[in-house]
Nucleic acid binder design. Structure first.
Length: 535
RNA sequence: GCCCCCGUAGCUCAGUGGAUAGAGCGUCGGUUUCCUAAACCGUGCGUCGCAGGUUCGAUUCCUGCCGGGGGCGCCA
């Protein structure tokens, strides 16, 4: 049982003695920011005093007295502070237990949660049109989506990573026409694609190729390659063409009609999305007989439920108006409202040569994701996207990221990992063997740096679960930076292999380093960043 | 006009219903007979945009306003 649960049940018992029944899960246990407030703290007296008709400070004192009379394991003192906080002071032994637990779990099991066991989730992200390379802004969705998927997996979910290829519609005809025009040495048509890559691709294109089919495949391969270089791989590539040929679109329309949600007006076919909170009804089939993008999209999402009981779409801020209509459609098809979730990410602004770079494929002159990866490196590119919340717009000065790549936080974290591995190499070279953990006395780990590092390591399981629930992989980045900082501080002040270090201390410290290796390994994997053994 | 996101240190950003709000960069100054100094340590006079409200307690939740970004098509 972890410390938090341990303290919760102790408090629950004490509350029971005071005549207050409380579910242990509802007792707040947190890590105070200020060390003077102990190792763990509970606000339970403040939270329940009113309901119990008690003075919070007195209630807290009563709880503290009860707990001090028969202290829970590891607890050395229970104190009352402030308006009625119950603060616990723990012996370092609780952190030594944490260390043993981490080593026992290993990279495979540490910070793994079972909250999602038996559930499946389908995450769709990037889904760029197959009309050109990915621009740097797409990199944010690739990094975010993939790390979110890894978080879900770590929490026990079965995950499908999905990319929807819109290989159909007017933009494809324009793309094909642009390739044909460039091939003939002419300018693309009105509304066509003016990017430099179209000129290059047109030269590659065989004379007898179908420009649309060839261009789609060319763009797709280009995108797959860049995504793979960023460590973002997909399980399922959905094609709008195949969807249309399968009859799924007609089936979806039939089902909506059967449900009574469809009506005709002004020659068009509408969906009454206002029934489910949308601001206005939406057109499914235009008066010219052509379906809007919305109808096949509904069919596509309906189909996705066969690849996950929960659907998550990751979209850019310009698509937020899309949320209410698709949510409405999914409910019309009988899916629970909370089974469909759209995560809206704010946009990336790219600065290059001191000026804002355009991200439009049609206008040309864009910064490609490929450029960013080649200039800054895959790890820097990926972690840069995962430094901040997707709720904030991100400004990336490409020149700055490249120029300062050696100062990038990714190296700070990777260097910590490299140090961990260099210890093993040095130990081997000096003939220092690591004794089995069971034979090592961890209680010698009492240096503030050792305890600080252990505290950080103890927080990874909570961090992972919180990051998954908040759909916020950047919280793992923050943790990894804190872990690296704690390791570097420990490294500086706590020598291990030096001759004057006691063998007992050396062994305990080597196991602490091993636990750090596990923590860093788990977090870097979640972030999709490599964990180099030397730098 | 309506909808979504943001507004925290000089800059870029974390963070939390709690008790003295943090990190990186930048500035200035230190640390190595020792496991890679890609490191460590010190150095910050912040109205947590403004005004109300809820609460024992709000920077965090709610409402309004101001400022920035995005969106409101029989486009996708």
């Amino acid at each position: 049982m972890d410390v938090r649960q341990h303290l919760r049940s102790a408090l629950a018992a004490a509350l029971d003695g005071a005549g207050i029944g409380t579910e242990p899960e509802q007792i707040g246990i947190e890590r105070p920011g200020n060390p003077a407030h102990g190792d763990w703290s509970s606000n339970v007296a403040l939270a329940t005093a009113k309901r119990a008709g008690r003075n919070p400070r007195e209630l807290a004192q009563e709880l503290a007295d009860t707990l001090n009379a028969d202290p829970p394991r590891h607890v050395t003192a229970v104190e009352v502070a402030g308006a009625g906080f119950v603060n616990f002071r723990l012996a370092p032994s609780w952190l030594h237990d944490v260390l043993a637990g981490i080593v026992d779990a290993g990279v495979g099991e540490f910070a793994r949660s079972a909250v999602g066991a038996g559930s499946s989730v389908n995450i769709e992200y990037v889904s760029a049109n197959p009309t050109g390379p990915l621009h740097a802004g797409h990199g944010r969705w690739a990094a975010y989506g993939d790390s979110l998927a890894r978080l879900f997996e770590r929490c026990g979910y079965e995950v499908t990573r999905e990319f929807y290829v819109n290989d159909r519609g007017t933009q494809m005809s324009l793309f094909g026409a642009s390739l044909t025009a460039r091939k003939a040495g002419e300018d693309p048509p009105e509304g066509g694609y003016f990017g430099e890559y179209v000129v290059e691709w047109a030269q590659e294109m065989p004379a007898d190729a179908d420009p649309v089919a060839w261009g789609t495949e060319r763009a797709h391969l280009d995108q797959v390659e860049v995504l793979a270089s960023m460590n973002a791989e997909f399980d399922h590539w959905a094609s709008e063409n195949r969807l249309a040929q399968s009859g799924a679109v007609e089936a979806a329309l039939a089902e909506l009609t059967e449900g009574g949600f469809v009506y005709e007006s002004e020659g068009a076919t509408w969906l009454r999305t206002t029934d489910f909170g949308d601001g206005q009804d939406r057109v499914l089939i235009k008066s010219d007989g052509q379906p809007t993008y919305f109808l096949p999209d509904i069919a596509y999402h309906q189909q996705k439920y066969s690849r996950g009981e929960r659907l998550i779409d990751i979209l850019g801020a310009d698509h937020h108006g899309y949320v209410s209509r698709m949510t409405a459609a999914m409910q019309m098809l009988g899916h629970p409202a909370d089974s469909y979730e759209v995560l809206i990410g704010q946009h990336v602004t790219l600065i290059r040569d001191g000026a804002e770079a355009r991200l439009s494929k049609r206008a040309g002159q864009m910064v490609e994701a490929r450029d960013l990866v080649e200039l800054a490196g895959a790890d820097v590119a990926r972690l840069t996207f995962l430094l901040q919340s997707i709720d904030t717009t991100q400004t990336i000065d490409v020149d700055l990221v490249v120029a300062e790549s050696s100062e990038n936080p990714v190296y700070y974290v990777q260097y910590a990992n490299a140090r961990v591995h260099s210890l093993a190499r040095q130990a081997a070279r000096r003939g220092v063997a690591l004794s089995p953990l069971a034979e090592v006395d961890l209680s010698v780990l009492t240096h503030p740096r050792e305890l600080a590092l252990l505290r950080v390591l103890s927080e990874l399981p909570d961090t992972v679960e919180r990051a998954m629930l908040a759909r916020a992989p950047h919280q793992v980045t923050t943790w990894a930076r804190e872990c690296a900082a704690a390791l570097h501080g420990f490294w500086h002040d706590c020598p291990i292999l030096r001759d004057d270090i006691d063998e007992e201390v050396r062994q305990a410290r080597m196991w602490l380093v091993e636990a750090t290796r596990i923590g860093l390994g788990v977090s870097l994997d979640l972030l999709g960043v490599s964990a180099p053994e030397s730098m």
